[in-house]
Design a binder for these strands. Sequence first.
RNA 1: GGCGCCGUCGUCUAUCGGUUAGGACGCAAGAUUCUCAUUCUUGAAAGAGGGGUUCGACUCCCCUAGGCGCUACCA
Length: 537
Amino acid sequence: MTTRVRFAPSPTGYLHIGSARTALFNYLYARNTGGKFLLRIEDTDLARSTEESTRSILEGLAWFELDHDEEIVFQSDNADKHRETARKLLAEGKAYRDFTPRETPSDGNVKDAIKERARAQGSEKIMRDNPYRDLSTEESDARAGAGEPFAIRLKVAETGKTTFEDAVYGRQERDYAETEDLVLLRSDGHPLYNLAVVCDDIEMQITHVIRGQDHLTNTHKQVLIYEALGVMPPTFAHLPLIMAPNKGKLSKRKHGEVVSMTTYRDAGFLAAAFRNYLALLGWSAGEEQEIYSLKELVEKFSLDGIHRSNAVFNFSENDPRKWTDDKAQWMNAEYIRTMPLSDLLPFVKAELKASKLWREEYDEEGVALTSDISSTANLGPDGRPESIALEPREVGSRDWLIYTIDLIRQRFFTLKDFSSQGRAYFSEDFDFDPAAIAKNLTKFPDLKPWLPELANRFEREFGADATTSIKAYTEENIETVVKTFTEEKGTNLGVIMNGARTLLTGVAVGPSMLSVFEVIGLERTLMRLRSQVAWNS
RNA sequence: GGCGCCGUCGUCUAUCGGUUAGGACGCAAGAUUCUCAUUCUUGAAAGAGGGGUUCGACUCCCCUAGGCGCUACCA
């Protein structure tokens, strides 16, 4: 039998990271077992469900690259079947009509009201005291025929217990006495969650229900429905919850955007990295590996590796550097700086395009570059990719772009950094960091004449109309020129380099300046070294 | 209140009765350096408490305290 699992979110908001992890685990299990990963939108709560939310969830799943099989099922489409099922159970005497007038839900804190009510009646434990439970069929039919509104409740047996084997939490038992005669159909004919879920899971032939641990106790009610229907329940696997740093519930209202998947997409996270991080929250392959490709996750995933204790999603509202979990940030940075360039390139392209920094020339195939531009496997002694031919490396070419990306990604954390911190490499329109100016320029007034002078020196040494000799504008040659220049001025190399760094890139940090000079290119180097903009700002 | 679930460094986790309790993130120190980052080295950092079982318990059992979940004509 092929496994069939489903991810069944209710569209009452964006895709929460907890839900995303549930989706991921379902997906991994399906792919691992060669089964199907289905999607069902549980939109039976008309008051709270929105189409926009559905869109947002689908968008989140798409970003996460969790493609589902078969058609999406909208639970509301099945309402008639749910009603039919409830009526069938009624006809078979497995459910009964409850004519108790519907309580107007007290506005305000529903949870507290429920808790209060439960507290009041809890110790008494009278679950079978509904006066309509044993109403005769004749009277029940008569009152219904007369138009009296009723809800349909499942008739839970007086004695016995529900039992199921949870793939994560093990054997679960619950005495019938602990479960009330749950409502299947509201008095307005609206099917309720537990009924709808069971009907749909049967209809969709779901073999494994993998969902949050908050449903662990609910499961007993669902098992009861399966039993009443005479259908074998699927295998259940409940997942530990993802908690806030204070071990409380992770919610949008309290924690804001950190819990939304779109936040990570918009913050320049790579789906692969975030997926990797989320996979390790509540699951492990039992080994000391941290980085897993999707393929590896699919191969290694198993229900046995799922933990039973909740995991904390760590972040700090006060520290902007730790706006989200440290490990998630680290993992994203790790992916950015080590993933094959050919895989990274499309993402950088999208980012640069969005920031109007993309040039058509970047799309043209480079001479030296072939299919494999993975730098990680081919690092030279200086940490630079050997597989990338450096010449010709015309500024603005595809080769140049790839080389540049590889150079600057080493200190980037998100895709956003390519258009912010990396802006000066792709555009003339970049800002100067006041702190960088103070630290590297104004502190050394001599630089004001020196740097344009360095530009002249560069022009004399490397320019097209060089009078002495024509040398290539490469790191090696640049180093010779800068060192000589530094000695002549009787200053430190750092002073010159950092001053130039600030003029060339606007910031105080970045790759080795020799690389920066080279990547910025002679023309732009000359222009920027001579510019007075930074000095005047 | 009732019922259920959970328990290893700050966080994510390894360990399935015998380990100097391992790894990762973060943190700290050092090395490298034109800056920052990377990288490398090193360091601090854990079995909730109490009883059992056992030659031996983080690991099995019980109790206490704690955290979480459910307890709705919500999902």
